[in-house]
Computed example of a mutant assay.
Amino acid sequence: MKNCARVVVIDDSMTMRKWLITILNSDQRLSVVGEASDAIEAREVIKKTSPDVITLDIEMPRMNGLEFLNRLMRLRPMPVVMISSETRKGSAAAVHALSLGAVSYLWKPDNPRNLDTAAVCETVFVAANAKVQEKNGAVKQQKDVHKVVGRDDQVILVGASTGGVSAIETFLSGLPITAPPVVIAQHMPSQFLRSFSSRLNGIMPHDIAMAQDGEILKRGQVRLAQSCDKQTGAKQTSMGWQIVMEPPEGYEKYNPSVEHLFQSAVQYAPNVVAIIMTGLGNDGARTMRLLRDNGALTLGQSETSCVVYGMPRAAMEIGAVQEQVHIEKIASRLVALTESHQEASQ
């Protein structure tokens, strides 16, 4: 069919390849144009077919998927959907893949028949239309990491989805450890979020962990919103900003929910910096507008630096974003704006 997204399937299991090919070809938006059993074979198939997107198994012979992905994103960046096993080790590897530039991931069940056809097709289709950002090597740390940023009564709230792993790493790498505390709502299952938290804590100088109900936050701390039966919010108390775990109450569509995180801080808006990053949909747009209307500083990731310009676009279109900034400059722009924002609010 015309205008189909061209897909190459890479997996060492012939059974899994055949199932994926059958599933993907059943969607009129997708067309499988090639397959490979390992990374070495994949290089030739990609050269011959020039796909729009590839699915890539993590565990493969000769060269594992992560090593191949790392090389691919440096030499020929393209949308990639990782396939990982349903294990703790698999989730850590998948998060690493997302940090390297993969757009999304799929669980690899023991039995290929258990693949969710609709979810597989939608994930691959969305990835095929994503804007891949070329990776320029290891995360670069902020030079002046001890420069005091913002006021003691401020908090930084961040929302992200597809493409968010790499975006968040880039943002935090430029944020001084003396900055106000950061709370992040990143759309991910709980197992992936725990792996992401562990990864960030190992590569960043900040104190990074999963959000815990009742915790009082301090400068230099970064907390990831939980994906559980409750939503993560933040409120200001006499002791400082505090994590609050609350019932969903209408925010069930996404867990964690950017909308809920932003809403929880609206009454303290003059002390909030809200940032909306790459992602599909409009989560966070409405309550980001409320934050801005009530005195918060609001920033959106620029279209050119987004993997998926969905959430920032939605926020921009309703006037929730004061300024759009390239992901590599959001941290430095935040540092520059906090003092002028403080003066304007006095």
Rank of each mutant, 00 (worst) to 15 (best):
I10T: 00
D11N: 15
D12R: 12
D12W: 03
T15Y: 02
K18Y: 09
W19D: 02
I23Q: 05
I23Y: 06
S26V: 03
Q28L: 10
L30T: 05
V32Q: 10
D38N: 15
R43S: 12
E44V: 01
K47W: 01
K48D: 15
S50W: 03
V53A: 01
L56N: 06
I58Q: 09
R62A: 11
M63Y: 14
F68H: 08
L69V: 03
L72S: 12
M73R: 13
V80M: 11
V81N: 10
M82I: 13
M82P: 10
S84V: 03
S84Y: 09
S91G: 06
S91Y: 10
A92E: 14
A93P: 01
A94V: 14
H96D: 12
L98E: 10
S99Q: 15
L100N: 07
A102W: 11
K108M: 15
P112S: 12
N114A: 09
L115W: 04
T117I: 13
T123A: 11
T123K: 14
F125T: 11
V126T: 13
N129T: 05
K135W: 11
K135T: 06
A138G: 15
V139N: 02
K143E: 15
V145R: 04
H146I: 01
I156R: 06
V158Y: 02
I168S: 08
E169N: 12
L172C: 00
G174Y: 00
P180S: 04
P181S: 05
Q186L: 07
R194G: 15
S197E: 03
L200V: 08
N201Q: 13
P205C: 06
P205K: 06
I208H: 04
A209H: 08
M210I: 14
G214D: 04
L217D: 04
V222H: 14
L224C: 12
S227P: 05
D229G: 04
Q231N: 13
A234K: 04
A234V: 09
S238G: 06
V258F: 06
H260Y: 14
F262A: 05
Q267I: 12
Y268T: 09
A269I: 05
N271Q: 07
V272P: 02
V272T: 14
V272S: 05
V273C: 14
I275C: 11
T278D: 12
T278P: 00
G281L: 07
R286S: 07
L290Y: 14
L290D: 02
L290V: 01
G295L: 02
L299Y: 08
G300S: 00
E303G: 02
E303V: 13
G310K: 10
G310S: 09
A315M: 09
A315L: 00
M316K: 07
E317I: 02
I318P: 11
V321P: 07
Q322E: 12
Q322F: 03
V325Y: 11
K329P: 00
I330L: 15
R333V: 09
L334I: 02
A336F: 00
T338R: 13
E339F: 13
Q342D: 10
Q346C: 00
